[in-house]
C-alpha cells in the first residue's frame, strides 16, 4: 500500500509543472522525453493521428520502442526515431513517459 501510494505520489510530483526540480528526477531523460511531445502533443496528449503517450505503462512503452528499434513493427515514422537511441536511453525515456498520469 505504502509502495503504491509512494509511486502514485512520485508520479504525480514528477509530472507536476516543474518536474525537473524533483530531487530524484532524471533531468536528462526529461529533456529527451520532451522531444516526443512535438508529435504526440503536450505531455503526450495527442489530438488525433499519433497515439497518446499519456496513460501507458513504462514497461509497455519500452517494449514498443524496442520493437520499433528492431524493426519488429511497421510504423510510418517511429522506426526512424527509435533507432536514434540506445536501449538504455529508451529505457530511461520510457520510465519518464510511463509515469505520466492520464
Amino acid at each position: 500500500m505504502l509502495r503504491s501510494a509512494l509511486l502514485t505520489l512520485a508520479a504525480v510530483a514528477a509530472w507536476m509543472p516543474g518536474s525537473a526540480a524533483l530531487a530524484s528526477e532524471d533531468h536528462q531523460a526529461v529533456q529527451w522525453a520532451a522531444a516526443c511531445f512535438a508529435c504526440h502533443g503536450p505531455e503526450g496528449r495527442s489530438d488525433g493521428g499519433m497515439p497518446s503517450l499519456a496513460g501507458q505503462t513504462a514497461d509497455g512503452m519500452y517494449a514498443m520502442l524496442i520493437d520499433f528499434r528492431n524493426g519488429k513493427r511497421n510504423p510510418t515514422v517511429m522506426h526512424h526515431h527509435a533507432k536514434g537511441y540506445t536501449e538504455e536511453q529508451l529505457r530511461r525515456i520510457a520510465d519518464i513517459l510511463g509515469r505520466r498520469p492520464n
Binding site: 512535438a38 508529435c39 502533443g41 496528449r45 495527442s46 489530438d47 488525433g48 493521428g49
Partner: peptide, 8 residues
C-alpha cells in the same frame, strides 16, 4: 495530426 499536435 502532426500540425495540430505541435501547435498544442
Amino acid at each position: 495530426a502532426w500540425s495540430f499536435n505541435i501547435l498544442n
